[in-house]
Design a protein around this nucleic acid. Structure first.
Lengths: 194, 194, 194, 194
DNA sequence: AATGAATGAGACTTCATTCAT
DNA sequence: GATGAATGAAGTCTCATTCAT
């Protein structure tokens, strides 16, 4: 299965490396082709245009990312545990793959609106996972029943996202996954004293 | 006073409009000049280069933005009220200025590392405001004493930022400031039932 | 062999023609590309930038120029004959190629310091040839033994160069090579009566 | 007399300094105006355009230069002495004014054909001085009678010019005027042994 | 006479994409 | 399928010159 479309994956992996190392604006198609060990023209046999490389990259990498989260979460017993697992997996997967983290947190955000829209389509699946945890938590009476679900989702995603971005931008020398429990605790219980 | 450096502000305001309407990558200097009603070359009497327009734009607009928040917050009595005020002002100011919101939430993030660094320098002042609210809250025994302040700041900023971004991207037809109290409640008390 | 790097030579030849006809300051890259029958961008597959076209032009043309002089001179028997041959070849080669003469005598001197430095590096080889003739002449007791070699070189080169420049600027209707013997005679014996 | 058109001379002197220090291509009108202590627009009250500054500069400075040579030469008794005096004065005047030497030997040669043509008009007066020395030398039977006068002039001017250019470009640490006698000797008697 | 803010034409270079081999 | 040489559109910035004050 992995050997299906070997060039396709070769090119996507090259793109991640090149963008992480050089930044989005210095990642010309020719540079990606060189890193992938193919000719410039070959790229266009597998991708419609440059933007399509990036969209595919995101679909491919985030697809696996989300899939794994969906699987692992299914095994947890309640919404709180699922939320913790989601945070931990999010942090673990990006924390173990700095180039990918750089690309998703920083470089891909410099893209044009069209691309960003397509990236958001991929993200929707992830946001749906968060939504279902929230709903489950409410059903389980773990979470407040009158929560504004959309806002909660934004808080969860915004906090996770900002935490990863900070880790990538600042130092990424401390353990990202080591912060999962604290982040979870904050999201669940807030900052105020009871 | 407003008549000081009229061209300077003219150009910055034109830049916000042009970028909000056309997107960062379609905002040529000539387009900004035309909207500002000046010649292309005039831009370079007031700005070192194109990037300098954007940095100045951010400094100018976010400077005012943050200044106002600092002032209004000073009048509040405790950390909780200050946090609510910060969220409300953040939402109110961007909610009342869609072009500026588009530029700060979407378009300016497509910029190169140099520009992003300078933007972050401006943001630092805002993050410092958040930090001081957190510290005050702990001193006032309103917030938990063993909070990881950096994580808390990331949660607060990440949540606010994600909320604004969603408002800008999705519909921006509902009231942004109308969500301030709920967001505040979530940040303070979390999502769990007591 | 001539078909090696055909585009490279195509572009250099086009550059000579365009510069000779329009002058250095009116010789846009696009004009050179058009004359060479290639797209503007193609220029940059063969040259680093515009200046590199000019440096390469000088290296290529003067390289051949000097090489030919070195070869022909080697066959002459003494310093005086060698000097005459050098003058004749210098005049013959430039006299037979007015565009090249215009470019080397007039247009290329309007370039910036960087370019001039590189041009001087190429010229050094030519000056070395003159130096060795002077030394040989002294050894052969044809020339005075206590000559200030550097000054002599300056006289020889200055005279030749000024003669070509005059020919190019004024009329270039008389034969340049026809003046070689007289120039040689002047350099060797001076202007005074014995 | 010196106080006539003080701005005119102020600007010309500023131009020499600015061009000598920054090079021709970095010598914008605004830079010259600043050095001269006048506004940009003021330049255009005294000069038709930028080129006119340079032409005037050359006329003014070379005018004085040639005038002095004409005067001093008149006092010499024969062509040989006059030639020596001309070389000495040429070297002395430029050797004592490095900025002027830089401008005339290097920077002004980067100008466009129009300017160069006007510069040559100024030079003609100098070349006429050389011509009359040659003619006098022939009449006095000091120089050979069948000399090609134009070639001789080119040799004399080319040699002097090349010597000054070398002095300016290389080191200009040795005395330029110290080479006058040797240069004179070479021009008069050539390089060959009798 | 003097100012200097404003003008705007003009050119080099990059790079995504194509297509003949 | 694979190549990579060639394409050409497009945008930032400079600077000589003007003209209202």
């Amino acid at each position: 299965m992995k050997n299906t479309k070997p060039k396709f994956n070769q090119i996507i992996d090259a793109a991640v490396e090149v963008i992480a190392m050089n930044g989005y604006h210095s990642s010309q198609v020719s540079k990606i082709a060189k890193k992938a060990g193919v000719a410039d023209g070959t790229i266009y046999l597998y991708f419609k245009n440059k933007e399509d490389i990036l969209v595919s990259l995101f679909q491919e990498k985030m697809g696996q990312f989300i899939e794994r989260i969906e699987q692992e979460i299914a095994e947890k017993n309640n919404a709180e545990e699922k939320l913790l697992e989601l945070i931990q997996l999010h942090f673990r997967q990006l924390g173990a793959n700095l180039p990918l983290a750089i690309v998703t947190q920083l470089e891909l955000r410099q893209s044009n609106p069209d691309l960003r829209k397509k990236i958001n389509d991929v993200l929707k699946r992830y946001l749906t996972v968060i939504d279902s945890i929230i709903e489950e938590g409410i059903e389980e009476k773990l979470f407040q029943e009158n929560l504004n679900k959309k806002l909660v989702r934004q808080m969860i995603f915004g906090t996770i996202d900002e935490t990863v971005t900070n880790w990538v931008m600042k130092d990424h020398k401390y353990s990202l996954v080591g912060q999962a429990e604290e982040v979870h605790e904050l999201l669940v219980n807030g900052i105020s004293k009871r």
